[in-house]
Every structure is written in C-alpha cells, then in structure tokens.
Simulated assay, not measured.
Amino acid sequence: LNASSQLDEFHGANRSRLHETASGGMSGGWVPLNMDDQQWIQVDLGYNTAVKGVAMQGQDGSDNFVTAFYVSYSEDLSTWTDYREPSDPTTTVYL
C-alpha cells in the first residue's frame, strides 16, 4: 500500500485497510496531508488479477470520509488507465 501523502506517522497508507480500527495513537484510517481531490491510495496486488469490487468506509470515530473516487490500473506502475464504463468506454467511472 502506498499513498500520495499522510497526515502523520499515525495516519499512513497501512491504515487504509477495510475495518481497520483505532489502536493506541493509530487512527482507524488513512488521512492525507491535504484534503483535496489530488490524493490517492495505490494497491500493488503483485500480479495481474481481476478486481471484482472496491469497498470504502469512513475513518473510525471521525467524520472524515471519501465522497467520490475513481479507479485506475497499471501493469507496469508507470502507465495508468482509468477504469471506464464497459457500455461507454469514453466515460470514466466515478464511484
């Protein structure tokens, strides 16, 4: 797991897993340094695989949560392609 940024050592990408709970000084979720639409989480699955879904949740005990996102994929971690609606490949899917 990688992220564009993190608020501090307690809010890193490793905290972005589904059902992550707050523990000690660690938050129950990833918090980026900047709250804008340029932040991202990257998951390297290690090999090509079909992803059947994406699940999101808000940060445990907070009103921090994502309201919209899109999914991009890459086979080489350099060239990225936005997931597009199969019935309309010109439209990026915002979830």
Rank of each mutant, 00 (worst) to 15 (best):
N48S: 14
V31M: 09
L33A: 09
V31Y: 09
Q6S: 10
T91N: 06
E75K: 11
D60W: 08
A68R: 15
H19D: 15
P89K: 06
D60S: 10
W80H: 08
L77V: 03
L7N: 04
F65N: 07
H11T: 13
Y70D: 02
A55L: 14
S78D: 13
L45Y: 01
G61P: 01
V71L: 15
Y70M: 08
L1F: 14
Y47N: 04
V31K: 14
A22T: 06
D82Q: 04
V51E: 06
Q57V: 07
A50I: 10
E85K: 01
G29Y: 00
R17P: 01
D60R: 07
L77G: 00
E9M: 04
Q39D: 06
E85V: 11
G25E: 08
F10S: 09
Q59G: 13
S87N: 11
Q59R: 15
K52D: 14
W80E: 02
Y73I: 05
G12L: 02
M26E: 04
R17Q: 14
R84T: 14
S5Q: 00
F10N: 13
S5T: 08
W30A: 07
D88H: 10
A55P: 01
N14Q: 10
M35S: 08
F10M: 13
V93Y: 09
T79F: 03
T92K: 11
L45A: 15
L33P: 00
V51A: 08
P86V: 10
R17K: 12
S23A: 08
T90W: 00
L7I: 00
D76K: 09
R84L: 02
I41P: 04
A50Q: 09
S74H: 02
T67V: 12
P89E: 07
F65C: 12
W30K: 12
P32A: 08
G61L: 12
T21N: 14
D76G: 00
K52S: 15
Y94D: 11
S16T: 00
D8K: 09
D88K: 13
M26F: 15
H11I: 00
D82M: 03
G12D: 12
V51C: 11
L45Q: 05
M56T: 15
N34C: 06
Q38A: 02
Y94N: 14
G53I: 07
D63E: 13
L18V: 14
Q39H: 03
S4I: 02
E20F: 00
D37K: 04
P86E: 11
E85H: 04
D8G: 05
V31P: 01
